[in-house]
Amino acid sequence: MRKLIMLAGALALAACSQEPAEDTATAEAPVEEAAPAGAVANGSPAGVYEVTNADGSKMTANINADGTYSDVAADGTVAEEGTYAVVDGKTCFTPTTEGAKPMCFTESAPGDDGSFTATPDEGDPVTVRPATAATTE
């Protein structure tokens, strides 16, 4: 469940833009990339998403255009919140919730219904759907 919650943070949006850095970055240093305002690494917009973990458990990820996110458990409690950004082509979530750890996700291209797979650096992939698409099926 914690990994599922952290993904919602993976729907993290990159609402910040950055000037291109000079050639002083090393291959090991993460490079924060400009993304469309209010979008995660694959270009999906800010919004409410249903996240389904590999074990079938679900949660709601609220990805905000201001670069913040919150993950809401099935019982309606906020499980995690923080900020997100696009770093090295991945959506990375930095939680402010005590005990939660930062996590980055590689996302597939969105399908016709806006759904995509988000694969964390460690752990099982999750399926992410815009809440409107998830509730109309």
Rank of each mutant, 00 (worst) to 15 (best):
T94P: 00
E22M: 01
A10M: 02
V48T: 15
T91A: 11
A12L: 05
P36K: 08
T119S: 06
P125L: 05
S57N: 12
A37W: 14
Y49D: 04
Y69W: 09
D113S: 06
T77P: 06
G123V: 04
V128E: 02
A25D: 12
D88P: 05
R2H: 12
T117E: 13
G123A: 08
C16R: 09
A74R: 09
A100R: 13
V128P: 03
Y49R: 05
F105L: 07
T135H: 03
D88Y: 04
K3H: 07
A39W: 06
T97F: 08
R2G: 15
A109K: 04
P110S: 04
A46K: 08
N62K: 13
T91D: 12
A14W: 08
V72R: 01
V48H: 07
L7R: 00
T127K: 06
D75C: 06
A134I: 06
D121C: 00
K58L: 03
F93H: 02
P130R: 00
M59P: 04
E107M: 03
A133R: 02
A65F: 05
V126T: 07
E137G: 14
D66C: 14
F105G: 05
G82I: 05
D71W: 01
A73V: 07
T132Y: 00
A118Y: 06
P110Q: 04
G56N: 07
G56E: 06
M1K: 03
A54P: 09
G9D: 08
P102I: 05
A134C: 03
S17G: 14
T97N: 09
D55G: 10
T60I: 15
D66K: 03
E81Y: 10
D75E: 07
A35H: 04
T94V: 14
A73S: 15
C104P: 02
N64E: 13
L13I: 15
C16E: 13
D75P: 05
P130C: 08
D71I: 00
A74W: 11
A54H: 07
M103D: 09
N62A: 11
I63F: 11
G56R: 00
T119K: 05
N64G: 13
S108N: 12
V51Q: 04
R2P: 13
N64C: 13
A10K: 00
K90Y: 02
D75N: 12
G111S: 06
A25T: 08
T26W: 01
V128T: 02
T68D: 11
A34F: 11
D124A: 14
G9H: 00
T24Y: 00
T60S: 01
G67P: 06
E80N: 15
T91C: 11
P20D: 13
P30M: 10
E33I: 05
E33N: 12
E98Y: 10
T119R: 04
T127S: 02
K90T: 03
A29Q: 14
S44D: 06
V48E: 10
A73L: 05
T135N: 14
R2K: 12
I5D: 13
V48I: 15
E107V: 06
A10V: 09
A133Q: 02
P95L: 08
E19D: 11
G111C: 00
S57R: 03
A10D: 08
A41S: 14
A100C: 01
N64Y: 13
M1T: 15
T117H: 12
S70N: 12
P36R: 13
M103Q: 14
S115Q: 09
P36A: 07
E28G: 07
A12N: 10
S70Y: 10
M1D: 15
L7G: 15
